[in-house]
Design a protein around this nucleic acid. Sequence first.
RNA 1: GCGCUCGUAGCUCAGCUGGAUAGAGCAUCGGAUUUCGAUUCCGAGGGUCGGAGGUUCGAAUCCUUCCGAGCGCGCCA
Length: 596
Amino acid sequence: MPDTSSAPHLFADVLARVHAVCRALAAEANWPEGIDFSRVVVEPPRDATHGDMATNAAMVLAKEAKAKPRDLAEQIAERLRADALISKVDVAGPGFINLTLIPAAWAEALRTVLREGADYGRVRGGSKVNVEYVSANPTGPMHVGHCRGAVFGDALASLLQFGGHDVTREYYINDAGAQVDVLGRSAFLRYREALGEDIGAIPEGLYPGDYLKPVGAALAKEHGDKLLAMTEGQWLPTVRAKAIAMMMDEIKGDLAALNIRHDVFFSERSLIEAGNNKVAETISFLQAKGDIYEGRLPPPKGAPVEDWEDREQLLFKATAYGDDVDRPLIKSDNSYTYFASDIAYHKNKFDRGFAEMIDVWGADHGGYIKRMQAAVKATTSGKGALDVKIVQLVKLLRNGEPVKMSKRSGDFVTLREVVDEVGQDAVRFMMLYRKNDAVLDFDLAKVMEQSRDNPVFYVQYGHARGHSIFRNARTEMFPELPEDADKRIAWLSESAVERLSDPVELDLLKRLAIYPRMLEAAAAAHEPHRIAFYLYDLASEFHALWTKGRDLPYLRFIINNDADLTKARLAMVQGVVSVLASGLAILGVHAPDEMR
RNA sequence: GCGCUCGUAGCUCAGCUGGAUAGAGCAUCGGAUUUCGAUUCCGAGGGUCGGAGGUUCGAAUCCUUCCGAGCGCGCCA
């Protein structure tokens, strides 16, 4: 269980009070044992006129308490009225209990934001989680298609980390299949080229990209012409290994351009090393459990398979764990299927202590989820849980027109080209400004706009505007306002935040108070996009308040004849700045002090 | 044929794991507006939440079934 006590915030506080009231009632009225109170939630009501918070306690508990929801609501409401933090309690609709908090509660919420600083909303002491993402084949540089999964996985990992989990970011290197052999042969061609040979056009079936030229050159430098005298069986392991290593360096460079780093790079090949064959081990493990048998499969129904051969083969009983058909583990040439090593890989994750695993895959792997989850169930006896997050396609556009071809590689647009053009912040934010399972339009021109239409700009500008206000306050009123964040926060913590009483100010404070709750929900649902939307809303509200000050001078942040109020408002601005910075940090997007 | 994902305002999308009268931004229409840093603010119209059933106090959300779109469908990874 995560230790939420280390992350105090208003919603958790009020929820605890509601729980306490319910438990007290349960004890007095002799409700049955073992009632599940976890369904009781405290949330902001959809309609703000209903109050600050609402709880469903009465409706959720009515059945077990053998009471009518409205009656039970009245009982709970009566006790909540005695709470000093709550100024007004109403029962409404089918049994909602609407709560209005005393204004000081919001001032206190702001104090919490300032006191916690960068840790506001953070939870400590959660479970171990393995997040596997990117895992692009080491056969070339990353292309745009990889961007989304990379950014999504990275942000999800950060979100879970902030939510208290002990997160390992992992990359699975597919360095064992046929395509790395193709990579090796392609590199060998470049090696001959580097030795001066005219290789002509790259044959069909090999990788044509220029990015393999440096591999050829490196091989030539390292081995001279020695490899030329060998048979393919002799040079392939060497050439392949070199090419994979150099491609991984290339990929790591691409990831670095997006500010992404992994803790573990796990080699598929390492699973089938002689003397330590994890795949064989895993198959025996499953065999002992009775999850493997020799059998035949019906031919696939869809696109006809030309060389279909009905044969007896080694099958994993995936249907016993929720899959639609049983899955083969060994190919006709006696090597393992990709699935077989993937089972071993996920079992290995579990054996390393990860009961919780998250994989981030592209949309084209959707059909693979069931079998993998079946495999995890089987290899962990149901103790491991695998959540697979599918990221949908990204449609790359420029001013609404599809961008297909690349200047550099010819057939695909590389990740670098996109990052170089619009910057990592824009790429990261926009990749997260959509649910992962919805198709995303990414318009290269739009994300460069400096306007409200561009969420990246709008949110970052919110942060910059906060700092701009600090700079103005410094020259106009408080030369002593510290530049250093920690010192500034300490200085502002001394302010009379109770002076913040205008409804629009309180709305902003309420928005800040929701942040930890939003993070909790986003982490539980594995949905980092919620942060992006929250930040956009927060920035909008902040910009709106700023704009109001244009017409209504009393709402400006800097009030020349009222130092106390100004300081309180600066504290509020700091609250906004802190939360924007916190959220952007989780998304891996910079929070600039000024826009240039 | 089967599986997975999606379907919400004219467009692009949210909707806090079942809550109250379904929201926001563009766009449209009507008003206001030279700004502590960048054309902003207020208001209005606009919906069979793809269709039809079901589950219960209550459904955009869960179940069933159709319709439509995308992806996938032994030995590729």
